[in-house]
Design a protein around this nucleic acid. Structure first.
Length: 562
DNA sequence: CACGTCACTTAGGATTCGTATC
DNA sequence: GATACGAATCCTAAGTGACGTG
């Protein structure tokens, strides 16, 4: 089936397929939605410098408020954040203000901070009716700006709102944290749409930077963001035909890898012995990417972002070699920050050959030197594409994630839906661990665990009581024990459900399941599993996921094999 | 091949929503 | 009806990888 086209398999999505690189024939939309203008502070809310009230210019005041709003956040205590902020804030000041305000420590944002908190509070305390009015207003904005016509379909746009100005919050030790992210004007925005469509109107008194008609790309609007100088795009929602089709293709490529992964593995095992150092490095990198699901690791511009790495950009300080450790030999200890500054820590026994190679790669190198000095992601991907069309480093993550889920789900049996779901979540969790999808433990974690435990205890007591009553009822009069039996059964069922839930939650404390579900696991595996196990799909996929994976829900038969 | 640009996917945290419980 | 909580959704940063240029 994998050779047949997406459209062929999935009737509902049937549509003409465009020639190379053409993404649409018709595109019409209303342009992005801009955030509201800045509202100046009321006169009674004052900013103080060095103990004296200072009336700031509008531009400086707006930026001051960005900082004041974040005062409860740890960010604002960080040296880098504060320095970047002050530097950018001063750029927004008048000459006079700039002369006066030179030291952030002399700034008192207390009143601005209090006002902000008050506003948040007030919003929370709005009456039901007022909240309803707000909701309807948002609905109207969504209705007007949140959809586009792409060919013959009305499609939901993913991010139709222009990002509001604020202070840049990078992840981890980001050298640019605290910098001012400027307000985007229509004059900064490029519109992309059909020549023969109704061209979106810029807000009154404004012009677009450019209107273009490029149907080889999928974005509807774009602008350049000032902090990193990168481009931001307005694109379609994940439930759109265009995105769904791309997603399907991604999983089909991963399935193709399944059929040639054995050959590729033997090849890189061979390459470990190559006379060429570059080939050996490529082989070891590929081994890591395959076995540990590491990301490719593109080079990054130094000083522009936090110091994170992937496979090809690993440096010697990120691994430690142990001839023997915890009863195993040839152990590689990984410790580095990956995407989003999430720590990757793992101790992995490897083959002698891999181990010897790593020792060789590290010879005569010092901290800061690349582990794979003869390799980059471009070379690696060139090689992979030559082994299989469409194969790149990231395909291994998709493939290994999906195949792991499928294997873990195989042979699971239980007649209880709660237990089936626990098994599913455990399979999902194995994938999340493989891909290192972590999360901060929820703030209320301990508390919520405790309250669940308490519920379990009280239910246990209730069960005991019910059992006793049942016994008594049986003794006294055989006919009237039915309802008591029912109570016992219901109690037992609820207790089991809660215990399973507690286990699930505990195991999930620092692991994020959503990322793999959303991006790595072929949805057809889950859909088929639900059908086979008679588990309602909405126990596994929420509304958003069901929308995104509509194509899979449509086309998947119970006998689907990844 | 080095390098920069561009388009698009992947990611965790923040915010909002909906509902169970008091 | 208020509150508290987990789930869902929003937000936007941070990756990957293709491609063009010199």
């Amino acid at each position: 089936a994998s050779e047949k086209s997406f459209h062929f398999i999935c009737q509902r999505w049937e549509e003409e397929k465009y020639e190379d690189g053409i993404k649409w024939k018709f595109l019409e939309h209303k342009g992005p939605y801009f955030p509201p203008e800045y509202q100046p502070l009321p006169d009674n809310v004052k900013f103080f410098y060095d103990g004296k009230a200072v009336k700031l210019s509008l531009a400086a005041e707006e930026v001051a408020l960005f900082f004041a709003q974040m005062l409860d956040h740890e960010y604002t205590t960080k040296e880098v954040f504060r320095n970047n902020f002050l530097k950018d804030w001063r750029k927004e000041m008048t000459l006079e203000e700039r002369m006066l305000i030179t030291d952030l420590n002399k700034c008192d944002f207390g009143e601005l901070h209090a006002m902000h908190k008050q506003k948040v509070e007030a919003r929370k305390n709005l009456s039901k009716e007022e909240k309803q009015i707000n909701k309807e207003a948002n609905q109207k904005i969504l209705e007007e700006f949140g959809y586009c016509m792409l060919d013959h379909h009305r499609e939901r746009i993913g991010n139709f709102k222009i990002e509001p100005p604020g202070l840049f919050r990078g992840r981890g030790d980001h050298p640019k944290q605290g910098m001012l992210k400027k307000r985007i004007q229509p004059e900064d925005v490029i519109i992309n749409c059909s020549r023969n469509s109704h061209i979106p109107e810029p807000p009154t008194g404004h012009k677009w930077k450019e209107v273009r008609h490029d149907n080889t790309v999928t974005w509807l609007a774009s602008w350049t963001e000032n902090v990193q100088g990168s481009c931001k795009y307005v694109m379609l929602n994940a439930n759109s035909k265009l995105k769904g089709e791309k997603d399907w293709e991604k999983y089909e490529v991963a399935r193709k890898l399944k059929s040639c992964v054995d050959a590729i593995r033997s090849q890189y095992q061979e390459d470990l012995k190559s006379k060429q150092m570059g080939t050996r490095q490529r082989a070891v990198a590929l081994y890591f990417i395959d076995k540990l699901a590491l990301r490719a690791g593109n080079e990054k511009e130094e000083g522009e972002t936090a110091d994170t790495v992937g496979c090809c950009s690993l440096r010697v300080e990120h691994i430690t070699l142990h001839d023997a450790l915890d009863g195993e030999t040839c152990v590689v200890e990984f410790d580095f920050l990956g995407k989003d500054c999430i720590r990757y820590y793992n101790k992995v026994p490897v083959s002698k050959r891999v181990f010897k190679n790593l020792k060789l790669f590290m010879e005569n190198k010092q901290e800061g030197d690349d582990l794979f000095d003869r390799l980059n992601t471009n070379m690696l991907n060139k090689h992979l594409t030559s082994l299989m069309p469409g194969l790149t480093a990231k395909v291994f993550r998709t493939y290994n994630a999906s195949i792991t889920l499928q294997q873990q789900l195989k042979g699971l049996t239980s007649d209880n839906v709660a237990e089936k779901l626990l098994s599913y979540n455990r399979a999902n969790r194995a994938v999340a661990v493989l891909c290192n999808h972590q999360r901060a433990p929820p703030k209320t974690f301990e508390q919520s665990m405790a309250s669940l435990q308490a519920k379990i205890e009280s239910r246990k007591e209730q069960l005991e009581l019910a059992k006793k009553e049942l016994k008594l009822a049986k003794k006294e009069a055989k006919g009237s024990s039915d309802s008591k039996l029912l109570t016992v059964q219901r109690c037992e069922e609820q207790l089991l459900k809660m215990e399973v839930q507690a286990t699930d939650r505990e195991e999930n404390k620092q692991i994020a399941l959503s990322t793999s579900k959303l991006n790595y696991l072929d949805p057809r595996i889950s859909v088929a599993w639900c059908k086979n196990m008679e588990v309602p799909l909405d126990k596994v996929y929420n509304k958003t996921l069901r929308d995104k994976f509509a194509w899979a829900i449509d086309m998947t038969e119970p006998d689907f094999v990844f």
